[in-house]
């Protein structure tokens, strides 16, 4: 049995009141996994704990078998995190930003520079590579951040609402890129409010509410759980979350 890309067990987090209450989640390697849930369900908190931004109160987190709480640097080296608010420096250009991120992940310059050029061209940022990010639209900023997330060739990509602010064409490109990454053997975990994205892209879907995993499986498995074979994901989602 292959090592899961992400394994979470008994995860707990409280911010005054409990937010995550004993969450168990396993995401197999090479999957595109969509994590869905109503607002305040704990999706972002879960993912922030997975990438080491928030310290859990209790529980285990493993990334490709690496204990992310005990050996965070090893886990981070193979993980990329793309939040809905791009982690950018206004006064750096896209090329400089990628240089900085590559430096943090200690990618040798002779390896990082060609990859940066490929990403910038693919994301249609090549012409603005020497323009500071401060005047960029939200979509452009999101693209720069995406390039930053991909520059170190992560094994696990964790993306929080990655399509926020992107135009239709770019959203399609990003979806294609995520699918291509999975086809190339990477694992992608996304949260999204756009259920159509999860329905069309995801191999497996997890529904989280009230700080725990309500249901998990393929779309067909979720439909079966909800008790109707011909439902859309939206109807399935509403039926499952309303039971919680």
């Amino acid at each position: 049995m292959s090592i899961p890309a992400l394994r979470i067990a008994g995860l707990q987090k409280s911010f005054g009141k409990p937010v995550i209450t004993g969450l168990d989640l396993t995401v197999g390697a090479g999957q595109l996994y969509a994590l869905l849930g109503p607002n305040g369900a704990g999706k972002t908190t879960t993912l922030r704990m997975a990438v080491g931004l928030t310290e859990p109160d209790a529980g285990e987190i493993e990334i490709f078998g690496i204990d992310a709480r005990r050996r965070p640097q090893e886990a981070k080296a193979i993980t990329a995190w793309l939040p809905d608010e791009p982690m950018l420096y206004d006064k750096l250009t896209p090329a400089e930003y990628l240089g900085f991120v590559a430096g943090l992940w200690r990618i040798p310059p002779d390896q990082a520079a060609p990859e940066a050029e490929r990403l910038l061209r693919w994301l249609e940022l090549w012409e603005v590579r020497d323009t500071r990010c401060e005047g960029f639209s939200r979509g452009m900023q999101q693209k720069v951040a995406l390039a930053g997330a991909l520059i170190h060739d992560p094994q696990l990509l964790i993306l929080d609402e990655p399509l926020t602010g992107l135009d239709a064409a770019m959203a399609r490109s990003v979806k294609d890129a995520l699918r291509a990454a999975v086809d190339a053997g990477k694992t992608v975990i996304v949260t999204t409010h756009i259920l159509e994205v999860a329905e069309r892209l995801a191999d497996r879907i997890g529904i989280i509410a009230g700080g725990r995993l309500l249901a998990e499986g393929t779309l067909e498995e979720l439909r079966a759980l909800a008790g109707a074979e011909d439902m859309t994901l939206e109807d399935t989602f509403i039926r499952l979350t309303s039971r919680a």
Binding site: T93, L98, G99, P109, A113, A116, L120, V128
Partner: peptide, 13 residues
């Protein structure tokens, strides 16, 4: 302030 792109990007790494 859109600057003209100036060739390769290896200098930024």
């Amino acid at each position: 302030s859109k600057r003209a792109a100036k060739g390769g990007i290896a200098r930024h790494f």
